[in-house]
Each structure stands twice: as structure tokens, then as C-alpha cells.
Design a protein around this nucleic acid. Structure first.
Lengths: 366, 366
DNA sequence: CTTATTTGCTTAAACGTTTAAGCGTAAAAT
DNA sequence: ATTTTACGCTTAAACGTTTAAGCAAATAAG
């Protein structure tokens, strides 16, 4: 059934045009088409395209030429199936519309793109259920690894164990968990709280309140611990009234600030564990004509762009989102490249940076 | 070589545990493993899992049970290869860290997720070159469709033609092109400009400037046309000085505002074609102590969240990002479901909404 | 001039699924 | 009793690659 045809120029041309015609009718070019045109085996074509040393330069050139003419595009699915690698990395974030997460994502994408990986982004919307579904979807899509920041709701780690048990690299960032024995990249939340309190003390604040995130979430817990320890260090009052747990949305920031203002003995500074909630707090203060920072100083967390846009601008903590993204990608690549299964864990804790702005600066005591 | 074993409970249990043991050693469960356990063919298993009517209820139950026990996860790559569908949709945006795009993406993701599709997000960073690479990557990944918003730089459409020529559904949103004969979802930019000018005229403005985007980008061109026509309608001066082309970054917004303030005859209103540039303009005005809106009224475009956070809050245009995302996903799904190749084009133009805020409201003429 | 080695390919199987075609067996229709 | 239909499965090929193994021919080494 195989016609042996002398591979001279005329025949080549004929065969090529025959194939091009077929292509117009439909179908995508495969390695087999190229092989047929050149009367060599598909295996040889595959090797030629991968610049295998056991294929002659002449054949390689011919293959590349025909591939170009036939507008050949490798079928990623086929090679992924055969090689057992999809070159896809799953990313799970609570949401993409915060600057922190979108910046992390952008940097992950850039770093992985260079190495031929694509990312699939999924959002949990802070829901544990959605997060589980995301994990299932990503595993189903045969991702080579997962980079994730956990939802606020997430307490059970069984789904993350599932990833580990599949032998798929898992890298957590920002919202991580100590219990889960995986790579982690984040900032030093505990120290950040110290920096903030230190700064506020320097500004002359005596009663510092903290609108914190959920205690059960490790990072927020660390911020709370840092806050308490820093207060102790400076022998400042630690009052239950001044430490409030919040969902850290703008709306909840408003509520919790209102709650603080209702106190007989108001704080002279409020440290909010998230910028969006800090914005809510700021709105309430502005609406009530309370001077910032003279009456109450305000500090946020995350250095979202708007903190530099509002009036007054809000002092905040820069979480080094780009560095986190880069490190997360790098950590994944280390796993992907090593064939070794056992490997020491990467726990990268970056030092955060306090960006001092108007909401806490140059406080003149009344 | 095939051992015929009576499928009684004892044997089943034995075979199951044998397989589970193997799994612990490594490897993922395949349809073949399930078939072996039950002594049926892989084909039967496949059909059972897809609830094929030609498989008995009894077998289906058994298959589902074994699948669960062996922790079977279908290999998406294999089925995608076989079926010629990856159930992956590529999304290309200039950047993800603007609220507009991340909101569109979020809505696309939600809508497609329901139908079993995943999205791969890529960013062009407004670069034509990056955009071309993104397209190549997405085609390489065998996406079933592409939803894109073009980079500012993009003028040549050959790469988009490439998508069309592959027969892959292409849906553009916001930044589209008339020349390219594809589905499009966007807002009515021309009318939006009319709404803005109308509003400013009502506020008593007589000299309305426009810091516009690049003329070559269709949407910005439409905004410019709308601006000019609206001015004509109200017999207001159309001056070259008052119409400036900008990259619409915050920084460029500052520059262009500064340029306008240097004019002998300053405008009494500035309509900026993008919120980030409007923010830059606002900063300059605030810094110079120019009253907004009393001295100069300001209007932005895009309704980014910060427009409601800054002082004064900025009047802007709501682009209905969620609706755009939903419609884009819906349009893709129409293509994906229909086997029909020829189909009428969807050009969905949504009416935008003017959100009036402090920067243009209650202008008291001096 | 024989034997090794290298070169440049081919063959065939594999990755895990899906699916068209086929084939016994049993039930229903004639 | 024979034919038809339906059921419930099996067989085998296919999707497009990659890759281990193998094999002739050419070249080098002895």
C-alpha cells in the first residue's frame, strides 16, 4: 500500500500541493502529514522537530520547511498525554480583582511563560466549597502543579492533602497553613504588626486598636499575635474592646470602625489588617469629621493602590506581591525540573515594608 | 493469558486490594484498572461512566463503586485528544489588574465553569508582540475558543485571522475591530461621550476638553467622535488644543492635565477617556488647589472602584463589565454547542451608564 | 578484509480515552 | 419453531505524539 516515490523536487512539490489542498478542505496538519510528504516515518519527523542528534541536518531542514509550508502546529494534547506532562499550572486565589492577587498572578504567569508553562486561574471567592471544586477541576485538567492562596473559609485541609497524595507539586502563598507540609511563600505578618505598632507609638499613640482578620486564618492570627506582643513590649493597654475580628471587607471595616467609635474610651489609632476594611474605616472617620491622624491615626495592610489615592492617603504594608509571585513560580519550577521526589521544603518568608502615608504621619497631639 | 475468574465477592475483594496495593506503589488509576477489577472491557467502563443506555444498571453501579474505591480521576488529556475538544478557553486581556478586566474575567469564568469549561488567562501588557505569543500559546494548548480584548498597540490583524482560519471561535470584547468579522461585545462608546458632554453642559460647562485614548483604537476613536459630535450639537468650541491623545496611564493623565492647565484659555471641564488617567488629572488639580468641579469639572471612564474613593469622587461611565463577561461566555458557548459552521455574527452593544459623582456635580459658576 | 562503531533512520508500542462495528445471548414477534 | 429485535457487552481502531528497540548501510578501527 505504500508507494515508493523518488524524493526529487518535482515529486515533493506534487505531494506538498496535494497535502495543502487536503488541508484547505479541513483537518489540521500532523506529524504524519509531514512524514508522508517526505516519505519518512512520523518518528523521524518528531525527532527532527526536537533537534534529535540522530537525525541528519538535511532531513531536519526538509522537515522544518515542510512543517512551515503546511502550517504545522504541534498538538499539545497528544504530547502531553504521551509525556505525562500537561505544562499547565493551576492557580487558585480568593479573587483576582485585588491588586495583590492580580500582581502575584501576573508575576507567576511571566515567570512560567518563559519556561513554556501556561497557567489556569481559578477563583474561590473565599468559599471553601468553590475551592474544592477548583481543585477537582485542576486535577481533572491534569495540571503539573498548583499554586494557591487559601480562602478565608478553608479550615479542612483534606482537599489539599489530595493534591499532595497525587504527587503534584503544591505551593501556597500568603494564605497558607503550617499544618500542611508544603512549600510556602509569604511575608512576615508577625513582624509587620510590630513595625506598625512601633510606628504608631513613635507618633505618640497610646491606645491602639486592631481590626483583624479571622483568627483561624494563619496570617491574620500572626498579625494579631504581633499586635499583642508589640503592645506588651511598649506596655500599652491590651483591651478586648480594642481587638475586633472582621471579614475585612470595606463594608465590615465601616461597621467595625463604627463599633470602635461607640466606645467610651476611643482609641487614638486603628490598625486594620486589610486595606479594603481600612478604606471603610476611613470613610466613617471622614463622614464624622474625625481628623486623621490628629484624632485617630489609621494604618492598613496590603498597600493596595487606592491607599495612595484617597484622602488622606493610608499608611500600609507592602506585601511584595511581585516577589511572592516570582518565588512561587520559581519554587514550582524547581519541583518540575527535579526528578527527585524527596526534596526539602521551601518556606520563604519575605520582610514586609511599611509605607508611611498621611493617615498616620505627623500626628500633632491636640 | 487472561485468567477467567468467577466474579464473586471474595475474588472481587482480592482483585481490588491487589490493585489498591499497586496504586500505592505509584501510578494513577485508569479506566483499564477498573475494567480489570471487574473483568469487563475498558470500553464498557467508559460507557458506564458516561451513563450509556446500552450498559446495564448493575454494571454501572459496580463501575462507579470501583472507580470510587480506586480513587479514579478521568484523564482529561486523553479524552480531549480523542474527542478533539480540550474544554479549555483562552482569554487574552491587556492586563488583569484593572477592575474592568478582572471583573469581565470573573464573569467569563463563572459562566464557562458551569458548562465544564476552564479558562486560560493571558496578558498582553498592551504589547502587540506579547499578544501574538499569547495567541500562539493558546492555539498550541488546543483551546476550544478564544475571548480577547486587544492591546492598544495592535493594528495588524493577521494573528487574529490565524485564529479564525483554524476554525476556532473568536470573541472580542471592549477593544475590538470592525474589520475583523467576528463576534463582539462592548458598550456604546459614541453614545457614552454624548452622555458625558450632555451632563457637563447641564452643569454649565462651556469649554470641554477631552483627554482621549489612541485614535487608532476603535473604542477610543468612537469616544472622540462622540465628543466632537456632541460639542457640535451644543455649538460649543471644538479646539485642537482641547483634544489630546494619551496612553491613558495615571502618569500620562498628569502630563496631559498639566498641558491643559498651561493653556491661555483653560477649559472648564475635562473628560478623560480612562479612569486611571482621570486620577492623574485629579491629582494635578488637587495639587494646584484648583477647585473641582467649581473651576474645572472632571469626568472619567470605566467606573473603576477608586473613582468612588478619591476626593472628590470622580464621575465616570459604568461599562457593565459583568454583563460583558457573561455575554462573551454565552457567545462562545453558542459556537461550541452548534455543530453548524456558518452562523450569524453577534455584535452586542450595551448601553453604558453615567455615574455622576462629586467631580462634576453641583458646579457653582464662580 | 573482517569486525566494530556510528549514523540515520524505521517499527511498534505506548499514553488513556472514546466510539463505530460486531457479536453472542435472550426475549419477543411471527 | 423460526426469525427479529434488543440487550449488554467486546473488539479494535483511533486521536497525535514520543520513545525504546532494532536494523541496515556507511564509516572507522583492527
Amino acid at each position: 500500500m505504500i508507494l515508493i516515490i523518488k524524493t526529487n523536487a518535482v515529486y515533493l512539490l506534487k505531494r506538498l500541493s496535494k497535502y495543502i489542498k487536503k488541508l484547505n478542505i479541513k483537518k489540521k496538519t500532523t506529524i504524519k502529514d509531514i512524514a508522508n510528504v517526505l516519505n519518512i516515518s512520523p518518528a523521524a519527523v518528531s525527532k527532527a522537530l526536537h533537534d534529535d542528534s540522530r537525525i541528519s541536518e538535511k532531513t531536519k531542514k526538509a522537515v522544518r520547511q515542510v512543517a512551515k509550508n503546511l502550517n504545522y502546529q504541534p498538538n499539545h494534547l497528544a504530547s502531553a498525554l504521551r509525556k505525562g506532562k500537561s505544562h499547565l499550572v493551576g492557580v487558585i486565589v480568593p479573587r483576582t480583582n485585588s491588586n495583590f492577587f492580580s500582581s502575584v498572578i501576573q508575576n507567576i504567569e511571566e515567570a512560567l511563560d518563559k519556561e513554556g508553562y501556561n497557567i489556569i486561574i481559578t477563583q474561590s471567592n473565599e468559599s471553601y466549597k468553590k475551592e474544592c471544586r477548583n481543585i477537582d477541576t485542576l486535577l481533572f485538567t491534569q495540571v503539573d502543579g498548583i499554586i494557591a492562596s487559601m480562602a478565608n473559609e478553608t479550615i479542612h485541609l483534606d482537599y489539599y492533602e489530595k493534591i499532595k497524595s497525587k504527587g503534584i507539586p503544591l505551593i501556597l502563598f500568603d494564605r497558607g497553613e503550617n499544618d500542611l507540609n508544603v512549600d510556602y511563600i509569604g511575608i512576615n505578618d508577625y513582624d509587620s504588626s510590630h513595625m506598625i505598632v512601633e510606628h504608631l507609638v513613635q507618633q505618640g499613640c497610646k491606645r491602639i486598636a486592631h481590626i483583624g482578620g479571622y483568627k483561624r486564618t494563619r496570617i491574620f492570627n500572626n498579625r494579631i499575635r504581633g499586635y499583642i506582643d508589640a503592645l506588651k513590649k511598649h506596655q500599652l493597654p491590651i483591651e478586648d474592646n480594642l481587638l475586633i475580628e472582621s471579614s475585612l471587607t470595606t463594608e465590615d471595616g465601616r461597621d467595625k470602625m463604627t463599633q470602635l467609635l461607640a466606645l467610651k474610651d476611643r482609641p487614638d489609632a486603628v490598625y486594620v489588617a486589610g486595606d479594603y476594611a481600612a478604606l471603610g474605616a476611613l470613610q466613617v472617620l471622614n463622614e464624622r469629621g474625625i481628623r486623621i491622624p490628629e484624632d485617630i491615626a489609621l494604618v492598613g495592610f496590603g498597600n493596595e493602590p487606592f491607599t495612595g489615592m484617597v484622602t488622606p492617603t493610608i499608611t500600609s504594608i507592602n506585601q511584595h506581591s511581585s516577589e511572592i509571585g516570582k518565588q512561587a513560580a520559581k519554587t514550582f519550577l524547581q519541583h518540575a525540573k527535579k526528578t527527585v521526589v524527596k526534596q526539602k521544603l521551601n518556606k520563604i518568608i519575605l520582610d514586609a515594608e511599611l509605607i508611611i502615608r498621611d493617615s498616620s504621619n505627623n500626628k500633632k497631639t491636640p
